[in-house]
Design a protein around this nucleic acid. Structure first.
Lengths: 145, 145
DNA sequence: GTACGTGCAAACAGTTTGCATCATG
DNA sequence: CATGATGCAAACTGTTTGCACGTAC
């Protein structure tokens, strides 16, 4: 995320009548800088959050604040901790089962067709979906021949 | 799952040289009877597991045993607990965000095309995917108009 | 009889909450 | 200055582990 985008986000929050504390800004900055999904623990370790001296509880409360505002998305991947990242545009993830690296993929056109079919068939009104691909990243695929 | 299918599963495990204890059988029966993803807590509450008097620890150990055997699949949906279900055939889930009911959908043909495209483009070797749809089930959609 | 499944209790990780204090708007 | 954000400590939930005992094969 670019700096102006971050600023826009911050201003829009003010416009919605919500307070913008140093902690909330620091947390956004941590996620923006990392530019990949982070665990709560990783967020606490991040420079931005460490500098702001945020407590564990505050980190969780702030994450949930930003999530309610629609700015942060929570990923429930395999594994025991949740991952958090900026919810700038809809995308999916490639999760390497060896090195655990996560990368993003953007397109999911075909799903909208599927969703329409499902709605028609089952009466279920789909609002959103989560899709993750698990496998070997280029590097790990090479190493494991 | 039908009774003969369950029996087949049980026998195949014996054939693989693994022991079949009452607990392991009870747990499979609980999942087969429910016929929907269950949390560990729900499994412990189930008739089959309660009758077998299985300890919490045993339930988790047994779930992980069956998962390693490829019989049980773990679902990491939104929410704080994992859900477990029999891994009989690949499918996806419709999760109602209101009543929390989970139903299954079978088809995902179009994804194989996407997966090929991703592999070509990124070099990532996809082995499997998880896909969940969130929205309103027919009943909740009607109530919330 | 031996390898391994199980119960029990304790530990553990990740996350949440109550309350007093502090800062933002 | 009032509402609400934060730190601290404690609680809580879901899950895992160590060890002694029991059971399937």
């Amino acid at each position: 995320m670019s700096q102006p985008e971050l600023t826009n986000l911050i201003n829009s929050i003010r416009a919605r009548g919500r307070r913008l504390s140093g902690g909330r800004e620091a947390l956004l900055r941590a996620l923006a800088t990392a530019n990949k999904p982070l665990s709560a623990a990783a967020i606490m370790r991040s420079v931005a959050v460490k500098r702001a001296n945020l407590d564990r509880a505050t980190v969780y409360r702030t994450l949930s604040f930003w999530e309610k505002e629609g700015v942060v998305e929570i990923l429930h991947l395999e594994g025991d901790e949740r991952l958090y990242h900026l919810n700038l545009h809809h995308h999916h993830h490639l999760v390497c089962t060896v090195c655990k690296k996560i990368s993003a993929v953007d397109f999911c056109q075909s799903l909208s067709r599927e969703e329409a079919a499902i709605a028609k068939k089952t009466g279920f009104k789909i609002q959103r979906h989560t899709l993750e691909f698990y496998g070997l990243c280029r590097e790990c695929a090479r190493k494991n021949y």
